[in-house]
């Protein structure tokens, strides 16, 4: 509100402390997870071989990556990671394709039924996942989609696609119409105007929408828990739940798994921070 150079030393210190506090609050659990993941698990001694000797170590005396190796050797972690990646990428592509075409129609055309169709599709955004769980389970069983990557992609799209639709409508509406009109005057067909003029301009919106779809799907637990039954389809959040139940009761390995599960979305976020923040601000996400 007031320019920084006008501040005295007391406000400056308060702001500094506030910033430190917020950063610690937001990162401390994650940092504790990192520390726990590099703390080796069992240091068996002769008199207590049968006891778990884990102690709370604020800083590991002998940091090592052994938990990460255990994770990939003893748990089908790579497989779960692959499944999460396939399903999240599929959800991203399907949602982007369906929702951005739909959003383009809503923002650039006036057609009969525009308002009721829009209201219906926005309602889909609010249909609770709890309501969809059981019917999707039965429908997927009938269609042979249960415990398949494709079925998971469809289920996740029920959350991601309506969000991307909303985000892209806002985005297309903010783009100037004149460019497309100029292109059409120059003899471009409407379709080629879409592909050559609109899509390149819409790239930031598409990136934000796609990333959010990816993250929503990557993070989703409910559908994955109910619609998958074998290691070849199960995703990381399902494994995280097993870990949280204490199976296997090896916290070092569990936290290593948690770190690796978070890495892809964290890196994506860091790389596209600006676009994502504006995309998130454009709408509220299910969570």
């Amino acid at each position: 509100m007031s320019a920084p150079e006008k501040r005295g030393w007391l406000p400056r210190i308060l702001i500094f402390l506030g910033a430190i506090f917020i950063v610690i609050y937001s990162t401390a659990p994650f940092i504790w997870m990192l520390i726990a993941s590099i703390t080796p698990e069992h240091v068996a001694t002769d008199d207590a071989v049968w006891l778990s000797t884990r102690k709370v170590e604020f800083f590991p005396s002998e940091p090592s990556l052994v938990n990460y190796f255990t994770l990939f050797d003893n748990v089908p972690f790579a497989l779960y990671f692959r499944n999460s990646a396939i399903i999240a990428t599929g959800t991203m592509c399907l949602s982007l394709f369906a929702a951005s075409l739909g959003a383009y129609a809503f923002s650039r055309f006036r057609f009969a039924g525009r308002r009721p169709l829009l209201v219906a599709m926005l309602m889909a955004y609010l249909v609770p996942s709890v309501v969809l769980l059981v019917p999707l389970l039965v429908i997927f069983k009938n269609f042979g989609l249960i415990n398949t990557h494709l079925g998971m992609i469809f289920a996740e799209s029920s959350i991601a696609a309506p969000f991307v639709l909303l985000l892209m409508i806002n985005f297309f509406t903010s783009l100037p119409r004149e460019l497309e009109e100029a292109a059409q005057v120059d003899g471009c067909s409407r379709l080629s105007a879409l592909f050559h003029i609109v899509l390149p301009l819409a790239l930031p919106g598409l990136v934000a929408g796609g990333l959010i779809a990816f993250i929503l799907s990557w993070n989703n637990f409910l559908f994955a828990f109910l619609f998958t039954s074998t290691d070849s389809v199960k995703t990381l959040p399902v494994l995280m739940r097993l870990f949280a139940l204490g199976e296997p009761a090896v916290w070092g390995v569990s936290t290593a798994g948690a770190v690796v599960s978070t890495l892809p979305v964290a890196l994506l976020f860091l790389a596209f921070q600006r676009m994502m923040i504006s995309g998130l601000a454009a709408g509220a996400v299910k969570g």
Partner: peptide
């Protein structure tokens, strides 16, 4: 930097957050 860091809890998968909080409040460790 502060704005980016406050989004970390949002980016972390909820199942991971749940796991970490269970771990922090664990009765033994």
């Amino acid at each position: 930097f502060v704005r980016a860091s406050i989004l970390i809890p949002y980016i972390i998968p909820p199942a991971v957050t749940a796991l970490v909080w269970v771990f922090m409040f664990d009765g033994n460790f």
